[in-house]
Design a protein around this nucleic acid. Structure first.
Lengths: 196, 196
DNA sequence: CCTGCTTGTTAGCGCTCGCTAACCTGTCGC
DNA sequence: GCGACAGGTTAGCGAGCGCTAACAAGCAGG
């Protein structure tokens, strides 16, 4: 047998936190933050209730870490794609493909990030909002460069609208992943092209 | 003086239900169904807590009536616009304008309908889902007629994506209403045009 | 072998929530 | 006038919640 596919010997234990975050994301997406109990999250990973407090300070902390890491991932990916060489249209296409990929692979995270900002601690919300704003700004810059005739405020509204379009993946399970990715990319770029 | 603009003499009392529904919509949109208490809703309309039970059987009934009436309104409006004479492109433009108008005038209702389906009673959810499905079908038919080269499944996905685009109004308060309506319509139609 | 750390367990506290009960008041038909 | 009803009030119930306390099992290092 080859070595354990998980990087650590105590793989099970080391990614308990990730396990919990993934299960909580699924539950939060389906029932909303207040609709999910500590016991539900525990049960979903095979432990029961208060054992979660060995890994997280509070229920709010679970949501906080979840949304923080999502926002950071999007911002990092966005800045990376925006920094690649190429025409403005290429950059925009890259951003679209990146966001579509994320939305397709993690529909639950998309749902949680869209719906549960208001349930964060004040401090966490501040952080997450800041990251989200920066991500939007990456898009705004890319849109403005690709279509200079568009004002910055219009570009920002267009960015939010395109996020809404792409983030429809949770309701969009009729098509196969590849086909849906291609369709969403075409729709998003078509919308942006029509903005100018 | 002309007659009272409200249809009944006891106008204040007659639309208590509407008043409650409007306040609850705003609260549900901001904090989620489980994040809002009976007392919060009461306070928002100037009465306190259990007085709500003079007008609604339960908290679930408030959400149920809210989502039912939204879905019915959308379906009615959608079928009306879809039935008007004109080219398929005109029909699509009419549907877009109708949905944009609703999303702009009632961002809270849009938010509630998107996020709180899971909090409904089984019976209510069944009803609402049926209405929503019918509304989607109105769009699917219109899309298929306007771009016959598109399959029905693709059209359904495109419809959901366009809903997501238009329903971004709650995050989209940078532009004036008229300007935003015009931009969203252009984006939506541009996306649909790019689908074919 | 003992010590201590990690990661579980169960019991239970304190609080909040949806909802009911019991009571009060203004308005209207007769 | 007066009874009935519509639409409010406050008090309080039972259940469920987040979280803590107290304890137990497995394992590591000396």
């Amino acid at each position: 047998m080859a070595a354990n596919p998980t990087p650590l010997v105590n793989g099970e234990k080391a990614n308990r936190r990730e396990q919990i975050l993934a299960a909580a994301a699924e539950l939060f997406a389906h029932h909303g933050f207040h609709g999910v109990g500590i016991d539900d999250i525990g049960a979903a990973v095979g432990i029961s209730g208060p054992a979660l407090y060995r890994h997280f300070r509070s229920k709010d902390a679970i949501l906080g870490e979840m949304l923080n890491s999502i926002s950071r991932y999007l911002l990092d990916g966005g800045t990376t794609w925006a920094g690649r060489p190429g025409t403005p249209d290429d950059t925009l296409a890259g951003l679209v493909a990146f966001h579509v990929g994320f939305a397709l692979n993690h529909p639950a995270l998309i749902t949680v990030q869209e719906r549960n900002l208001a349930n964060l601690t004040d401090a966490d919300r501040k952080q997450v909002r800041a990251l989200q704003r920066q991500y939007v700004e990456v898009w705004v810059r890319a849109i403005c460069e690709a279509m200079p005739e568009l004002g910055e405020r219009q570009a920002r509204s267009a960015a939010h609208a395109v996020f809404g379009l792409i983030n429809s993946t949770p309701y969009n399970r009729h098509l196969g992943d590849g086909e849906l990715a291609e369709l969403l990319s075409r729709l998003a770029l078509g919308a942006l092209r029509a903005a100018g």
